[in-house]
Amino acid sequence: MTINESKNYDEVEITINCPHIDDQLQRVIKQIQQMHITLTGTRDGRTYSLCIDNLYYIESIDNQTFLYEEKDVYKSDLKLYEFDQLLLDTHFIRISKNLIVNTAHIDNVRALLNGKFEASLTNNEKVIVNRHYVKAFKEKFLS
């Protein structure tokens, strides 16, 4: 790896030189791209710019959408299906009708008896992957 640090640069530019893009490199590229996506959320009457890497999950409750970081919760005017589109090629995946999770914050997963999965997040919260979403979840999480 080569890193050139200089005050002559105005912004960060990443160049990848490779013979071909394999699955591992494709994952690295997606992670880098994900770092540049920000969302806005409100809390206590203030609007915040949120880096999606810090989000654990996005949940819709009673027609309201909430963005969850490790300890803070923000409200968003966007609908869950809009987040599905915005976060299409990121670590986020829909795991139920009302929840999208950031797989980068999943510590472990265990199968439940009813065909669902329980995912334990790195902040010790647990979320349920409904049966309908298990196949896509396994493909994304295990890849």
Rank of each mutant, 00 (worst) to 15 (best):
N130Q: 12
M1D: 02
E59P: 01
E13S: 11
K7V: 10
R131P: 02
L112K: 14
A111T: 02
R94H: 04
F137A: 08
L87G: 05
K116L: 00
Y81H: 14
N17A: 09
L55W: 13
K30W: 02
R27D: 05
L80C: 05
N114T: 06
I29E: 03
P19R: 09
R131A: 07
F66A: 02
I29R: 13
R94M: 04
D62P: 00
T40L: 10
I100E: 01
N54V: 03
T2H: 07
I3A: 04
Y81F: 15
E59Q: 14
T122H: 06
F141T: 03
F92L: 06
K97F: 08
V101P: 00
D22F: 10
V101S: 01
L55F: 07
L78M: 14
R46N: 12
N54S: 14
Y133E: 07
N8G: 02
H105R: 12
Q31G: 03
N124T: 07
T103A: 02
Q26A: 13
I52D: 01
K126R: 14
L55P: 04
S143H: 10
R110S: 09
S143G: 15
K7G: 11
F92T: 07
Q24N: 05
Q33A: 11
D53Y: 10
Y81A: 05
L67T: 13
L121P: 02
H132M: 05
I32L: 15
S96H: 07
S49N: 12
S49C: 09
N63P: 00
V134E: 08
T15E: 14
S76I: 04
I21C: 11
T38L: 06
V101I: 14
Y81G: 12
I37F: 05
E11D: 12
I106P: 02
I106G: 02
D44F: 13
E70M: 12
I52A: 03
N124I: 03
D22M: 06
Y133F: 15
V134I: 09
P19K: 13
V134D: 04
F137W: 10
E5H: 05
K75Q: 15
R110V: 07
P19Y: 09
I106K: 11
S96Y: 13
N63W: 05
D53C: 09
S49W: 02
V109K: 05
N63E: 09
V134Y: 11
F92I: 04
D107F: 11
E13Q: 15
T2A: 02
I93E: 00
N123G: 06
N54Q: 15
I128Y: 09
Y56E: 04
F92H: 11
D72H: 11
H36I: 01
Q34S: 14
N102T: 08
L86S: 06
K7M: 05
